[in-house]
């Protein structure tokens, strides 16, 4: 480690990563990525597919332990935690939204929403009240008693967002939350997410490869081939018809 562990990151950063390196069984995923996430901001991580966005979010949320580098959450080192502590951290302080809704098909919508609260050990009644309140707040209260199979994909994704918000996380990780949706649904879902996050001062780390999505964020970090770059632009024009001289 380059930095001794007693030097904590700056206080205004709720999450802080320093020179992360990670490979997926040999294939490089992240190379020397550092970033800080300020409190109650919406940070967009952009980049094309395969640029390491999901891996970065995984490292920040403690799902993946980076091979090199450090991750700090509120002045607590995440990279040195054991598996159980990271699990507890994820359950109590973080929430995660996947590209697919990841709902439990056997549970109804409100049960799915209440599941993180139940997993934290909250009582059945309190968890149900919180879940129903959040479903109402996100305009899907009418769906509360349906099963995920009976919903539209955009509705399911909104349920997944409700589930993430209902557990009142400190940091919400959204990994391409609108990837399977059409544009109209996508805009709606994103507005819901950002509005709820801003009104509850939740920190959001949003991975996306869509420039319009990134425009909703306070700040943008761009990844390209696992490195942080100032902007992702296609540099090589080789093979383009306009430049080809061999025709």
């Amino acid at each position: 480690m380059a930095v001794p562990p007693d030097i904590a990151p700056p206080d205004n950063d709720v999450l802080w990563a320093r020179s992360l390196h990670h490979t997926h069984s040999g294939s490089p995923a992240l190379t020397d990525v550092s970033l800080g996430v300020r409190e109650s901001e919406i940070l967009a991580v952009t980049g094309p597919r395969g640029s390491g966005k999901t891996t970065l979010l995984g490292c920040l949320s403690g799902r993946i332990v980076p091979e090199q580098g450090e991750v700090w959450f509120n002045s607590v080192p995440v990279h040195t935690m054991g598996a159980l502590s990271r699990e507890r951290l994820r359950r109590d302080r973080f929430a995660w939204i996947s590209p697919e809704p990841d709902l439990v098909p056997e549970l109804t919508v409100w049960e799915n929403t209440a599941l993180p609260l139940l997993l934290r050990g909250e009582g059945h009644r309190a968890a149900k009240a919180t879940a129903l309140e959040w479903l109402e707040r996100l305009d899907i209260g009418a769906l509360a008693r349906k099963r995920p199979a009976a919903l539209l994909q955009s509705e399911r994704q909104r349920v997944a967002i409700t589930r993430a918000l209902a557990s009142a996380p400190t940091v919400l990780f959204a990994d391409e939350p609108t990837a399977p949706l059409h544009r109209a649904d996508s805009v709606h879902v994103l507005r819901t997410l950002t509005a709820a996050a801003r009104s509850h001062r939740t920190t959001v780390v949003l991975a996306t490869n869509d420039a319009r999505t990134a425009a909703l964020a306070d700040r943008t970090v761009t990844l390209l081939d696992g490195r942080r770059v100032s902007s992702a632009q296609a540099e090589d024009v080789e093979g383009r018809a306009a430049c080809s001289l061999s025709v």
Binding site: R91, W96, L119
Partner: peptide, 15 residues
């Protein structure tokens, strides 16, 4: 896949 999704949500493996 569902188990993985639950783990991503922070469900303890013990649960």
């Amino acid at each position: 896949p569902l188990t993985q999704a639950l783990v991503r949500q922070g469900a303890p493996t013990r649960t």
